[in-house]
Design a binder for these strands. Structure first.
Lengths: 215, 215
DNA sequence: CGCGAACGCTATACATAGTACGGAGAATTG
DNA sequence: CAATTCTCCGTACTATGTATAGCGTTCGCG
């Protein structure tokens, strides 16, 4: 789908009926011959991308490695198509691509001793984390881009606003942690680090449940 | 702010410059006297709601109870103002309300033995989970409402679409788990249950880290 | 007291969305 | 060959955020 390349290159907000039509060399209204409306277009885009996802799972390194692989694949997907994190929020498109993905990812977590309902909940939990992370990363990128200034400039610009609000006396913990987090962020701390942290927490959380189930 | 009540009653999409002005008995452009633009209006709404959040934390039931309380408060917030989950996604407004909330919630997790960077990451992780959950719940409600049909009707309507895609032979795991999850969902399984599951996983995940830090 | 400036507000207008409607030409089919 | 369907297009309507210009009131200062 041409709309996917458009979204990859210029973001979701560029995916407009008129724009997509232009890329295809058609008139805007011609699109409605193939697609009922914009919502369905987006659904199609999502399902198509799902269908194309890489599917290569280590079969025997234990559930933890498989779950991590699932998360990594989804993160890679959101990196390749940043608009996915913002779009797939509503009801899933329920197409063949999602189906295949669902099957694949369930198998990654199967044989953990969880019952079917727990299995579904665990997968949802894992994917929810990846999506939240991807969305945060995408937002950060968007802010940096449209404000057209670096982090440092932004913090400098809002310094006096911060000073009014960020009273270290009233908010000692926030001041302390905010400073540490800010420093870490501008230093060696990267989104990759945050992802690792979160994924570790999620897997540990699932591990606690799995251990309980398998005694 | 009148815009907040409007959003509570009719959703974010109803928060339109013209609509808000109408509620206030003003002309649309009069709003620009008080607010630079719509983005700032939304920021103000978010920060105001943050400032009004209930803040009553059990001081001495252990970090797990405090973290659960933080999560519950945030969930309650998203239940009272469903638009929050959809709006606060971009950069936080960085106002006094957010500041107070941040301080309060950090204190809930302080004294867990985590260093400052981890503390911030842990809180982000916890809030991220709540937001993901809230967003999923809100989406579900939205779908049910605008399709104006119950879950059963929807599944019935899409049955033949599903039949084409949901081949139990190609996707055995998905069929099995999907059936179980669907049954659980229409039965006793409720969003509340899903929330409990996810929160349990998040807290267990943090517990693993905290135990490691405190030996 | 009087007058000019600032303020609060309004009306109009423009750009950009999605998409409803009706029609024109081409392709397929009976 | 005729008829019907399919593909596509031009126009137009609605809703949205917001720029611009102008109106009346009020307030500060001489």
């Amino acid at each position: 789908m041409a709309a996917i390349e458009l979204a990859d290159a210029e973001g979701v907000e560029a995916v407009t009926m008129r724009r997509v039509a232009q890329v295809l060399g058609l008139s805007p209204m011609a699109l409605y011959t193939y697609v009922p409306g914009k919502a369905e277009l987006l659904d199609l885009m999502v399902d198509t991308v799902y269908a194309r996802m890489p599917r290569s799972m280590p079969a025997d390194d234990g559930w933890r490695a498989r779950a991590a692989a699932v998360a990594d694949d989804n993160r890679a997907l959101c990196r390749a198509h940043p608009w996915m994190a913002a779009v797939s929020t509503s009801r899933p498109p329920l197409g063949p691509g999602l189906m295949a993905k669902y099957e694949y990812e369930l198998q990654a977590l199967d044989s953990t001793g969880l019952d079917d309902v727990e299995l579904n909940a665990a997968l949802t939990h894992l994917l929810g984390f990846v999506q939240t992370f991807a969305r945060m990363a995408a937002d950060e990128r968007a802010v940096q881009q449209d404000s057209a200034m670096s982090d440092k400039q932004w913090w400098a610009g809002n310094a006096e606003l911060l000073a009014r609000v960020f009273d270290p006396e009233r908010y000692p913990t926030a001041a302390r942690v905010g400073a540490a987090a800010g420093e870490a962020h501008s230093g060696a701390y990267s989104p990759a680090r945050a992802y690792e942290f979160g994924l570790g927490r999620v897997l540990d959380g699932l591990a606690a449940l799995i251990e309980k189930r398998t005694h």
